[in-house]
């Protein structure tokens, strides 16, 4: 708690003090942008009926790094995130324009099956939403519907290693048969991360994954995100600028449906080019 408060104080004072992970990034400032590009978005627009929610977003998402989207409420950052795995398809009256490419393949190609896409791009939601089933079943569900395990032994292995990667295995190894909904909030969110990992995605989208968690659970998830970036391309939407500063290598600032500024996290927080970004980071808007 005091750490968070300190960080906030420092940020308000304009002298951003990086946490452990961000300090690592700071040592190699080009790290984030030197990476190959995994996802490219060009001129992405979203309309909800007559209302335009996104105005031509273009951004490149680097491979095996954490990209964070920040901005005030209703700025379109979650909407854009949900375009990437086409979750907006499920919303009545939502229309998406422009192109989003994953490894050069158009995500909105009518020949592309959305089921396959979502197997490649996993998602973790704002509120932990485990299935009302056992911990084991929660993790096993994805591999099972996609036919990733040939037999029970394979499935067991997937479940255990997913739970390990999500840092949950040691806590739940004796009660895999118990309901996932009986875990604490932070554990539930890690269970959801394990569930996403179990499908073997290349990209993991996280929509404010810590907003419903207490600071300790948040710290654990942030650490986990930092570990996961070794193997996964991660895009995270967050309300907390401190979180963005701590976990991400690249940051994009959204405002009123526009992408205002994007760049290496450290640059955005220490040296924003745009006036609006400056104001937001200084706490003057949002």
């Amino acid at each position: 708690m005091t750490n968070l408060e300190n960080a906030q104080m420092d940020m308000l004072a304009g002298k951003v003090k990086m946490t452990q992970q961000s300090v690592n990034t700071a040592m190699n400032p080009s790290d984030a942008l030197d990476r190959p590009i995994r996802l490219t978005a060009r001129d992405v627009t979203v309309h909800y009926g007559a209302k335009q929610a996104l105005h031509g977003i273009s951004i490149d998402i680097p491979d095996r790094a954490v990209t964070s989207f920040i901005g005030p409420s209703g700025c379109g950052k979650s909407t854009f995130l949900r375009c990437i795995n086409r979750m907006n398809d499920t919303i009545e009256g939502a229309k998406v324009g422009g192109t989003i490419k994953l490894d050069g393949e158009d995500v909105y190609d009518p020949n592309l099956d959305v089921v396959e896409l979502r197997a490649r791009i996993g998602m973790v939601f704002q509120k932990p939403n485990p299935f009302p089933k056992s911990i084991y079943e929660n993790v096993a569900y994805g591999p099972r519907i996609h036919g990733l395990a040939r037999n029970k032994a394979d499935l067991d292995e997937i479940v255990i290693s997913s739970l390990r990667k999500a840092g949950l295995f040691e806590e739940v190894k004796d009660r895999l048969g118990e309901a996932g909904t009986g875990l604490s909030g932070g554990q539930q969110q890690r269970l959801c991360i394990a569930r996403a990992i179990a499908v073997g995605p290349e990209v993991i989208l996280m929509d404010e994954p810590c907003s419903a968690l207490d600071p300790i659970a948040t710290a654990i998830i942030e650490e986990l995100i930092d570990e996961l970036r070794e193997n996964y391309t991660i895009v995270i939407v967050t309300h907390s600028m401190q979180q963005a500063a701590r976990v991400s290598q690249k940051t994009a600032f959204f405002h009123l449906g526009n992408l205002i500024e994007e760049g290496v996290t450290e640059d955005i927080f220490t040296n924003p080019v745009n006036k609006q970004t400056q104001d937001y980071i200084m706490g003057r808007i949002g």
Binding site: M87, T90, E116, N129, F131, P132, I145
Partner: peptide, 19 residues
């Protein structure tokens, strides 16, 4: 949230409904 969880994992609509 339950529907999104299923869809987000790549379940089809039918799988979401029946599972």
């Amino acid at each position: 949230a339950l529907r999104q969880a299923a869809l987000g994992l790549g379940a089809s609509k039918t799988q979401m409904v029946f599972h």
